[in-house]
Simulated scan of single mutants.
Amino acid sequence: MALLEKAPGESLATDRRVQGLGVLAVLWLVTVPFTTTDSLTGLILTGLVFVMLGVSWNLLAGYAGQISLGHAAFFGMGAFVSAWLTTPSAAGFPGSIELPLLVAIPIGALASALIALVIGPVIFRLTGHYFAIGTLALAAVIELVMLDRRDLTGGATGYYVNADLSIGEAISHGDVMFFLTLVATVATVVVTYLIVRGPTGLGMKAIHDDEDAASSLGVNPLKYKMYAFVVSSFFAGLAGALYGHYTLYINPQSTLAVTWTIDSLVIVILGGMGTFAGPIFGSALFLLLDNGLSAIVGGFSSAVEGILIILFIIFLPTGLYGLIKEYLVEETVETDAAHD
């Protein structure tokens, strides 16, 4: 039996051999800070952040069918709320609210989820393209407000975060943040997998396929949209909090920039929207393209990257996951059947 062979209709993620490869990948990632340079460790950490963003955005768009262009708002608010708690004096808050980084990071993620919970019932009055435009407008408004509130954010200048977790000279702050990000990434992937494989995931897929038909069968569309929106925003905020405390510097223009949303969208397109493993594959490919093309084509890297994305949309709409499924899995099954 070939490595990627599976039964008809079975997801690759349920195959124990594929799960074993995932465990080996995680074990290899654990060794990264000890076997690579700081710059490469930082690059891989960025890749982990991309996985969290891609998986969380895919939960909302790929499974619940709600194309959001405001993911950057939740990424940025998670970073800022956690930074306010670890470095309150820089934002004009009393020092008495200062919290350890390990407490501030999940609170930042919860703050993003709370924002989604509050605005969700309002913004879900919009549907289709109007919902996408509404989320984009929301992200733009939040960025403008945070830029204007220099007392809280430092404005365009931003401010440095005081949360160094280095352990002597042996383990740097970046290494500690790498391990925290790795744990958070694994948790994001596992929790999302449990959601999409459970009854809630079925409800999301139902409203994605046909909201009216699902509603007529007793499925509450708003309930499942809100669930996906809140969980997606939580993990986006968690990614933002981790990334902000890795760089130890935040400002509204970079932390709340729409590029984080675009990156999330591109990652899912490259990997395969509506597939569980797609964002993971897409994150790896996007990281290679984003950094490799600069070394190969220099200033034309953005243009080449854009062309490649267009080609993926046209010729490979199911992304890398679809390519693996079609050419590695199905062909392997056919070859083995022919030999039998």
Rank of each mutant, 00 (worst) to 15 (best):
A163L: 04
G158Q: 02
N162F: 15
R150C: 07
T153P: 09
V189E: 00
F178T: 00
L152W: 14
M146N: 06
R150L: 11
Y159V: 05
V161H: 09
G155Q: 02
F178Y: 12
G154Y: 03
G168V: 09
E169D: 15
F179E: 06
L144W: 13
T157F: 14
Y159P: 00
L182N: 04
L144C: 08
R149H: 15
A170T: 12
T185N: 02
S172I: 07
G168I: 03
A187W: 09
V145I: 15
G168W: 04
M177D: 09
L182G: 00
S166G: 14
T157I: 10
T157D: 09
Y159G: 05
M177I: 10
A184Y: 01
D175Y: 05
T185Q: 03
G155E: 10
G174H: 04
R150K: 11
I167V: 13
V145L: 12
F178A: 03
S172K: 08
V161P: 06
V176S: 03
L152P: 14
V189F: 09
I171C: 14
D151I: 05
G174L: 01
S172Y: 04
D148E: 14
G168H: 01
R149K: 14
R150Y: 11
L182K: 02
I167A: 13
G154P: 06
Y159L: 10
D151F: 02
L144V: 15
V183R: 05
R149C: 05
L180H: 03
E169P: 13
G155H: 08
A170S: 15
A163S: 10
D164L: 04
L182T: 00
A187D: 12
V161W: 05
T188I: 04
H173Q: 07
N162P: 06
L165G: 13
M146G: 09
V189W: 05
D151Q: 09
F178C: 02
S172V: 04
V191I: 14
G158N: 02
A187Q: 12
I167Y: 06
R149I: 08
E143K: 10
D175W: 09
A163C: 07
S172G: 08
I167L: 15
A170P: 03
L147K: 05
L144S: 15
L144Y: 12
T157S: 13
V176G: 02
T192L: 06
D151W: 11
D164S: 11
V145Y: 11
I171Y: 12
A163R: 02
S166N: 10
A163E: 05
M146P: 04
T157Q: 15
G155T: 02
V176F: 08
A170N: 11
H173V: 08
L180D: 00
Y159W: 15
L144G: 12
G174E: 00
I171W: 13
A184G: 07
G155Y: 01
G168S: 03
V145W: 01
G154A: 03
T185I: 00
V161R: 00
A184Q: 02
